[in-house]
Amino acid sequence: MDSFTELFGTSPLIWAILGAEGAFWILLFGGLAVRYLLRRRLLSSIMLIGVPLVDLVLVVLTAIDLAGGEEPNFTHLLATIYLGFTVAFGHALITKADVWFAHRFAGGKAPQAKPKSGPAYVRAAWLEWRRVLLAVIIAIGGLLAMQAMVGWSVPSSFAETNDDVIWGMIVKLLAITAIWFVAGPVYAVLFRRTSPTPDTTERVSDPIRSH
């Protein structure tokens, strides 16, 4: 329990984050189930609109928690990172889930398989990395706003940066972005740029017949 408190603090915000995660999936799959199983498109649209509102509630709760004097801890950082992830990847997740529901319950087209190589693979790698970049930008923006709320300060050395809760996380997020760039788009361009050439060699029967 002491390690849990040390990591997440005494704030109930961690439960708000868990609740937001649960609400995200409930509203997403609940909204799609209402659309394709009950044929209630208006109610479905209202439920899906509620997905980004969950993020707004989480931002407000985080700001209230910090304004109340709570010291920044991993919980606040997690809330900010969660916000960046849902904003950057939320629409893509909703679209994929919608395609799957439409195919499974409404006779829609089957979801397209993820390309394994070729130009389509490269485009997908760049698109995914841009979403990661957007998520990190939003998260870092939230972390800097958090730093301003508790008193602006900039570490004077890398050791101080690594020990600081907020600035240390910013450095980690930048490192993750760089690693993802190399393992994603750079790898795709260097090693998966072209699709394997299918064997189109025409097989011709031997014209010489044995007697």
Rank of each mutant, 00 (worst) to 15 (best):
T5N: 12
L7R: 13
F8N: 04
T10H: 12
L13S: 02
W15E: 05
L18V: 14
F29P: 04
G31E: 05
L32T: 05
R41T: 13
L43V: 14
S45W: 07
M47Q: 03
M47I: 12
G50V: 08
L53C: 06
V57S: 09
V57E: 01
V60Y: 10
L61A: 14
A63N: 10
A63L: 10
D65W: 01
L66M: 11
A67L: 14
G68R: 13
E70F: 09
N73Y: 10
L78T: 14
A79N: 02
T80S: 11
L83H: 00
G84T: 04
F85E: 05
A92P: 00
A92G: 04
A97D: 04
D98P: 02
F101Y: 14
A102M: 08
H103D: 04
H103K: 04
K109D: 11
A125I: 10
W126Q: 08
R130Y: 07
L134D: 00
I137D: 00
I140V: 15
G142D: 02
L144P: 10
A145V: 03
A145Q: 03
Q147T: 10
A148N: 09
S153A: 12
S153M: 11
S153K: 13
S157C: 07
D163I: 04
D164C: 10
I176P: 01
I179Q: 04
W180R: 11
A183D: 12
G184F: 06
P185M: 11
A188N: 08
A188T: 13
L190N: 11
R193G: 15
R193C: 06
T194G: 01
T197S: 12
P198I: 11
P198A: 13
D199C: 08
E202C: 01
H211G: 15
